[in-house]
Design a binder for these strands. Structure first.
Length: 630
DNA sequence: TCCACGGGCGCG
DNA sequence: AAAGCGCGCCCGTGGA
């Protein structure tokens, strides 16, 4: 039955006949002894700062309460939404939680049917994650999502019915999902919020992501514009420089129209026609210079940069072009929210490996290196009177490899606090540690240690001898000898990675480390075997090697987020998480609290990792600054 | 003019 | 770039 709570004087006869009118108290009474509440909202739009909540729905399968929050203050339901002994069932909780945060409402315990489905179907093609699909899959329910748009035209029987249906099936969906989740070891039936299971982790960290979307990250506009101006200026200089080189060249007449010779046009007009953003034209330019390539990607330019001055300058222009187009004025214009003075990026919580993605803007790809990296990050700041307190893990992926493989040498290096690249380098090449920074004889441009670093990070991705050979600029056989020499010294690492890869190819899935065991499916594996599709099998093998490492990293970082977020919440600390970047958390904290918070944050990071990493030390380096500085 | 696609590249 | 994993964004390109 559908119950409707509204303070409108006139509902119209149709609605009058359709709904059972109820009061705020009725809702409280109904759910008093119920352990679960199914919750949803209908809003004017996507922005909790701008858009109102039009309807708030509570329900179970038998009864749904639809509240007209245009006339009934949503805060009447703050208490009902904050019961610590109840579980709140939502589809895509992140959306609703943002609107609740705006009202100062903190829903304590969530089961998210959307996230649960993501967890169950990670890696599968053509999966259906929307509520109507889940209702039909798990509860034989039929939802008419087409009605959603009608809500903006006002209340109607159809709209109220639609809103009620959105909270009708959530518990049945949960029951259906739980059977599979428990089966796969992804959840514990007794506690869907157990943060040491994948389901519990996601159900808890979604509260943190919702708050991060709502809270955003502070942006110093002036600082941003200053850096953008500098990028634009350098870009202009660099383009002029390149244009001149093109004009001077006797082989690039194709790009220099005849009218340029007489300088008939204004001085601000470019004298060459080439578009340096066009891969096609760049390849053409290289070909005309006698460099036979079919791609203009940077590794190729690097290889040929000594063949002609233009190549080196082109690389430099490409860098500046990227900075300008992706991280200059346009990003500020599109992502800055004047109302809060901040960016409010959106998070996608579960990718193939368990990592998150970020968009509008993608704060995971803000430049970190080069002259402009730190300058761009300098514009990411805390609230006035607050500091940025950030931390990241040191060599987390390589510590995971130690944990997984239990390789004696690898363990020893971390346990004795040695330099991994240096020690392994000396072993691989059979040279004393004092010589690892000497140039590699077959390619003096790089050192032995550079090669070792490439191997250490590349092996977890299934790097081939071909790729290493190209990095080392030596024949493939030479590279293969280096890899063989390396694996001979750390045989357990070799065996463990091969085992991951083989498991993925054979079983069609791979898991992250215990206690999580997050699953990634490889649906193409059977067909690939049947057709002897070695390309696809190779992809599965390499992804199978990498996913336990990358995914375990993600599990750990999410657990650290839960630890930090709930610490802030429970103690009402003046702090917020503002960025989550792979194995790094950036937070903001009130000046006077920053020192204490830094210590707590570091502990949250270390505690999280030590759930999984027990054989080697875990190091999280935290710092207090005025801006993002990493 | 719009859209889909892919090259290319930013981060880890 | 690629027989190195995982992403999102910008731009050029080519077809409708």
């Amino acid at each position: 039955m559908i119950h409707f709570i509204s303070n409108r004087t006139e509902l119209g006869s149709e609605i009058d006949a359709f709904v059972n009118k109820a009061t705020v108290q009725d809702v409280y009474d109904y759910f008093r002894n119920k352990p679960e509440i199914q919750v949803d909202t209908e809003t004017e739009g996507f922005d909790p700062y701008e858009d109102n909540v039009l309807l708030l729905q509570f329900g179970d399968f038998d009864n749904q309460f639809v509240i007209d929050t245009s006339t009934v203050n949503i805060l009447n339901f703050k208490d009902l939404l904050e019961k610590k002994d109840k579980l709140y069932l939502l589809q895509n909780a992140k959306f609703d939680l943002r609107f609740f945060y705006h009202q100062g409402i903190w829903v304590p315990r969530v089961y998210d049917t959307f996230l649960a489905e993501c967890i169950l179907t990670t890696g599968l093609k053509n999966r259906q994650l929307a509520l109507d699909a889940l209702a039909s899959k798990y509860a034989n329910g039929k939802l008419n999502k087409a009605v959603r748009g009608e809500i903006h035209r006002g209340l109607s029987v159809r709209v109220i019915n639609y809103a009620a249906e959105d909270v009708k099936y959530l518990s049945k969906i949960k029951t259906g999902q739980m059977a599979h989740l428990v089966d796969y070891g992804l959840a514990r039936r007794e506690d869907v919020n157990d943060k040491y299971t994948v389901l519990g982790l996601e159900n808890r960290v979604v509260r943190a992501f919702a708050h991060m979307e709502y809270n955003g990250v502070g942006i110093d506009q002036d600082q941003w514009k200053e850096t953008s101006a500098e990028i634009e200026q350098e870009f202009g200089y660099q383009r002029d420089k390149l244009d001149d080189l093109v004009i001077q060249s006797d082989r690039l007449g194709k790009f220099v129209p005849s009218y340029s010779q007489g300088d008939l046009f204004g001085f601000e007009k470019r004298k060459v026609t080439i578009n340096y953003n066009s891969p096609q034209q760049k390849v053409q330019l290289l070909n005309l210079l006698g460099i036979n390539v079919d791609s203009s990607a940077d590794p190729i330019l690097q290889k040929y940069q000594d063949r002609h001055p233009i190549v080196k300058e082109l690389r430099e222009l490409n860098k500046l072009s990227k900075l300008s187009s992706s991280f200059g004025y346009s990003l500020l214009e599109e992502a800055y929210k004047p109302q809060t003075g901040r960016f409010h990026p959106e998070y996608w919580q579960i990718l193939q490996t368990g990592r998150i993605s970020v968009k509008q803007p993608n704060t995971n790809q803000i430049p970190a290196r080069g002259k402009f990296g730190p300058l761009i990050r300098k514009a990411f700041v805390g609230r006035p009177g607050w500091k940025i307190v950030g931390g990241d893990y040191a060599a987390m992926e390589l510590r995971e490899l130690a944990e997984f493989s239990q390789d004696p040498l690898w363990l020893k290096i971390f346990n004795e606090g040695l330099d991994l690249h240096t020690v392994l380098c000396a072993e691989t090449f059979n040279i004393p540690e004092s010589e690892v920074r000497n140039p590699y004889p077959k390619n003096p441009a790089i050192t032995y240690r550079d090669i070792q670093k490439t191997i250490n990070y590349g092996l977890a991705y299934g790097m081939s001898s071909k790729k290493l050979a190209s990095t080392m600029n030596v024949p493939k056989e030479e590279a293969q000898k280096v890899i063989d020499g390396f694996f001979a010294k750390v045989p357990y690492v070799d065996q463990k990675l091969s085992k991951f890869g083989k498991f993925a190819m054979d079983k069609g899935y791979i898991k992250t480390a215990p206690p999580y065991g997050r699953i990634r499916w490889f649906p193409g594996h059977e067909k690939a075997w049947a057709t002897q599709d070695s390309y696809t099998l190779g992809k599965i093998e390499r992804a199978g090697m990498n996913t336990p490492i990358q995914g375990t990293n993600a599990d750990i970082t999410k657990l650290a987020m839960v630890n930090a977020f709930e610490d802030i919440e429970e103690n009402n600390y003046p702090a917020n998480i503002v960025l989550s970047v792979y194995d790094e958390l950036q937070t903001e904290a009130e000046d006077s609290f920053a020192e204490e918070w830094k210590i707590r944050l570091e502990k949250h990071l270390v505690d999280a990792a030590q759930i999984i990493i027990t054989s080697v030390p875990v190091i999280a380096e935290c710092a207090i600054t005025d801006h993002w500085d990493h």
